[in-house]
């Protein structure tokens, strides 16, 4: 009888640890099982999984953006996550900062998040920095990372990351949200455009989540966008042009727009070469 391996049979075979293919796997059995659904994706492989295990990601801010971003990067198998946040968990954080529970109130956010994420994925390294990073520390940590995610909740930190990534010519990701307004970005210094070109150089009106509130699902969506963009960036190192994804609440959609460089920008101020 002719045998034809069906799609479902292939799936079972590839996820079965007693199969020869699994025995030859470069991934340890438990990790093969842990990442099995991801490994079934057509463009994923054990090689790609191993490459991801070599990557280091710095996440600045473990609030409404950082929690979902870190959750999915940990689940995907980024090898080393460094989480930075100087704040403590408060009751008002729990609706959208999904790594925290009532029992975490009063604990440092980076440390509490690292503990939860380590339970989620014991196969990666997760470290916590439990203080606000000053300029010198940001310079050092950004240089260490393969990719930086700005999930902070204040303009000063965002501008500092923008400036340092520009100086170090590092591609980076970030997001901002307040009320029903929000957007995420990928900034590639080689292609021109930066957060100051977007208009962030001017002091923003008093606002932020403390005054304006924030639409809970929006920060979750932005955090997931960051995780997905980060995985793409880490996997193939694709040098994309700088762009911003803008949330439009009434249409319930995001619009992706290219970020044009301001030739006179004080931060980037050079023409594109990508």
């Amino acid at each position: 009888m002719a045998t034809k391996l069906t799609t479902s049979a292939k799936l079972i075979t590839s996820a079965n640890h007693s199969s020869p293919a699994a025995l030859q796997s470069p991934l340890p059995d438990q990790q093969f099982l842990y990442y099995s659904r991801q490994l079934l994706l057509p463009d994923w492989s054990e090689q790609r999984q191993l490459q991801l295990q070599q990557k280091k990601v710095l996440i600045v801010g473990m609030g409404g953006l950082g929690c979902p971003a870190a959750t999915y990067l940990a689940g995907a198998g980024v090898g080393w996550l460094l989480l930075a946040d100087g704040d403590k968990v408060e009751l008002s954080n729990l609706p959208r900062q999904t790594l925290f529970r009532v029992s975490d109130i009063g604990l440092n956010k980076a440390e509490a998040a690292a503990a939860t994420l380590q339970q989620l994925n014991p196969f990666i390294r997760i470290d916590a920095l439990s203080q606000m990073l000053d300029e010198a520390e940001l310079v050092r940590r950004i240089a260490w990372a393969d990719l930086v995610l700005d999930c902070s909740d204040n303009l000063a930190t965002k501008l500092a990351i923008n400036r340092i990534c520009q100086q170090q010519q590092r591609c980076w990701l970030g997001a901002s949200a307040s009320g029903y307004q929000g957007y995420s970005w990928l900034i590639n210094p080689a292609s021109g455009g930066c957060l100051e070109c977007l208009g962030h150089q001017q002091p923003l009106l008093p606002g932020g989540c403390l005054q304006q509130g924030v639409y809970t699902p929006l920060v979750g969506q932005l955090g997931l966008q960051l995780a997905s963009m980060a995985l793409q960036q880490l996997a193939n190192g694709r040098r994309r042009r700088s762009f911003v994804q803008i949330y439009q609440h009434h249409q319930q959609q995001f619009s992706q727009c290219q970020l044009l460089a301001d030739p006179q920008c004080k931060c980037c101020g050079v023409t594109a070469d990508v």
Binding site: G61, N154, S176, A177, S178, G182, H200, L204, C209
Partner: peptide, 10 residues
Amino acid sequence: VLIFNLVAGG
């Protein structure tokens, strides 16, 4: 045209 507010929260 898309006009959107600049925000800095997270």
